[in-house]
Computed example of a mutant assay.
Amino acid sequence: MATQIRSGDEQAFEVLFKRHYAGMCGYAFRYVEDNAQAEEVVQDVFLNFWEKRLTLEITGSIEAYLYRSVRNACLNHIKHTKVKLRYAESQVMSLSETDNQVSDKVVELELREKIDICVDQLPPERKRIFKLSREEGLKYKEIAGQLGLSVKTVEAQMGKALKFLRENLMEYLPVLAILVQVSILVKEWLIKYF
């Protein structure tokens, strides 16, 4: 199979993908503890494997190589997340020293504007699913029925939407930490968007 994939045989690659995708997602989930993130890691591993198939030197089985790649990608993701959290915590510390200089209302408005901008950047179907869930309070099954989609598709789209919002609102984490103590409105936003 390795020779077939190396020569660009897409059917052989698809067989490999279908054979190992679910198991690799379960394996990745043990590390990242998030289904959407686990799937993204596995998809990235397969994409990277396909793109570098001509230059890869695999000793042992392809399966072992792929699982090692998933483990390494998960560990890199965890490390990157910890770095971002440490940065956010340091920002909270520096903000707590100067929080008297910041107007809470202005920051709330800025945060709301940033959230609205992020939501507007979502692809149309994902945006519709997100709004039905977070603004109208529909359950995934209700959204799936209303839009004629599978519940799994709704879950996947919500996972991607929330991941996008978390990544794009990371810089506001320190501000959120301070505002949670003073604003019911911000608490409502956190429940909706995180």
Results as ranks from 00 to 15, higher is better:
67 Y>N: 03
122 L>W: 01
102 V>C: 08
80 H>V: 01
158 M>A: 07
46 F>V: 08
4 Q>S: 12
182 V>A: 11
137 G>A: 02
108 E>I: 10
128 R>V: 02
81 T>G: 07
155 E>F: 15
132 L>S: 07
122 L>M: 01
45 V>A: 13
38 A>L: 06
112 R>S: 08
66 L>I: 12
25 C>G: 05
91 Q>Y: 06
176 L>K: 04
171 E>N: 08
70 V>G: 04
179 L>Q: 13
18 K>A: 11
186 V>N: 03
140 Y>T: 07
144 A>F: 05
75 L>R: 12
120 D>S: 15
146 Q>H: 08
54 L>C: 01
118 C>D: 13
75 L>H: 09
169 L>Q: 03
194 F>C: 07
147 L>E: 03
151 V>H: 06
137 G>F: 04
26 G>V: 12
53 R>C: 09
178 I>T: 09
62 I>Y: 10
104 D>G: 10
10 E>G: 01
66 L>P: 02
74 C>N: 14
104 D>V: 05
62 I>G: 07
97 E>T: 10
29 F>T: 02
116 D>G: 05
26 G>Q: 15
152 K>N: 12
192 K>E: 02
117 I>Q: 14
149 L>Q: 12
143 I>E: 06
16 L>W: 13
27 Y>A: 11
85 L>E: 10
51 E>G: 08
193 Y>A: 05
84 K>V: 05
191 I>Q: 01
129 I>V: 15
111 L>V: 11
58 I>K: 02
72 N>P: 08
128 R>F: 02
35 N>C: 02
170 M>P: 00
52 K>Y: 08
85 L>D: 05
29 F>C: 01
19 R>C: 01
70 V>W: 07
164 F>P: 15
162 L>S: 01
17 F>G: 03
2 A>P: 00
15 V>T: 00
37 Q>I: 09
173 L>M: 14
12 A>H: 06
16 L>N: 11
160 K>R: 14
117 I>E: 15
115 I>T: 02
113 E>K: 15
152 K>L: 11
66 L>Y: 11
13 F>N: 07
98 T>G: 09
116 D>H: 08
188 E>L: 10
133 S>A: 13
11 Q>F: 08
115 I>V: 14
186 V>C: 05
145 G>L: 03
134 R>D: 00
112 R>P: 02
101 Q>N: 07
85 L>Y: 01
136 E>I: 03
179 L>R: 10
176 L>A: 00
127 K>M: 14
165 L>R: 03
57 E>D: 11
81 T>D: 14
97 E>Q: 14
174 P>V: 01
160 K>G: 00
136 E>A: 04
152 K>P: 00
42 V>G: 10
40 E>K: 02
101 Q>V: 04
176 L>H: 00
24 M>A: 15
36 A>R: 09
21 Y>V: 08
143 I>V: 11
139 K>D: 11
35 N>M: 03
189 W>S: 03
32 V>N: 07
185 L>A: 09
8 G>Y: 07
1 M>N: 12
55 T>D: 12
21 Y>T: 09
170 M>S: 06
118 C>K: 09
193 Y>P: 06
41 V>G: 10
7 S>K: 14
67 Y>H: 09
188 E>Y: 06
42 V>E: 14
80 H>A: 13
151 V>T: 05
108 E>C: 07
159 G>C: 00
88 A>H: 13
20 H>R: 09
163 K>G: 07
104 D>A: 12
107 V>P: 01
67 Y>T: 11
140 Y>D: 12
